[in-house]
Simulated assay, not measured.
Amino acid sequence: MKLVIISLCLAAAVVAQEKYDSIDDNFDISEVLNNERLLNSYTKCLLDKGPCTPEVKKVKDKLPEALATRCAKCTDKQKQIGKQLAKEVKAKRPDLWKELVAHYDPEGKYQEAFQDYLKP
Results as ranks from 00 to 15, higher is better:
22 S>L: 05
78 Q>E: 07
21 D>A: 01
110 Y>H: 15
29 I>P: 05
47 L>H: 04
51 P>W: 07
57 K>A: 08
105 D>W: 02
55 E>V: 14
120 P>E: 13
80 Q>C: 09
17 Q>S: 15
87 K>G: 01
94 P>V: 04
37 R>L: 14
17 Q>W: 14
5 I>C: 11
97 W>A: 02
80 Q>W: 10
47 L>C: 00
82 G>D: 00
26 N>D: 11
13 A>M: 08
15 V>F: 11
97 W>G: 01
28 D>I: 09
73 K>G: 02
27 F>P: 03
111 Q>C: 02
18 E>G: 13
57 K>H: 08
36 E>S: 12
25 D>A: 01
80 Q>H: 12
44 K>L: 08
34 N>T: 09
39 L>P: 04
26 N>A: 10
114 F>P: 05
9 C>W: 12
89 V>W: 04
40 N>Q: 13
76 D>T: 04
77 K>D: 10
35 N>H: 06
55 E>T: 13
88 E>F: 05
2 K>W: 15
120 P>D: 13
12 A>V: 03
93 R>H: 15
86 A>G: 01
105 D>E: 02
49 K>L: 11
114 F>R: 00
87 K>I: 09
38 L>A: 07
10 L>T: 07
4 V>W: 15
105 D>K: 04
31 E>V: 14
46 L>Y: 00
19 K>Q: 12
50 G>R: 03
86 A>Q: 02
25 D>K: 00
81 I>P: 01
101 V>I: 08
115 Q>A: 15
11 A>S: 13
74 C>Q: 02
1 M>R: 13
57 K>V: 02
103 H>D: 06
35 N>E: 05
105 D>F: 04
20 Y>F: 14
1 M>P: 09
3 L>V: 09
107 E>C: 07
51 P>H: 09
46 L>A: 04
80 Q>N: 11
36 E>V: 10
62 K>H: 09
76 D>W: 04
31 E>T: 12
82 G>Q: 06
61 D>T: 06
32 V>L: 07
49 K>N: 14
92 K>N: 15
75 T>N: 00
37 R>F: 12
48 D>G: 07
7 S>P: 06
5 I>W: 13
91 A>M: 08
7 S>R: 07
89 V>G: 06
67 L>N: 04
118 L>A: 01
39 L>M: 07
45 C>E: 00
1 M>Q: 13
40 N>T: 10
10 L>H: 03
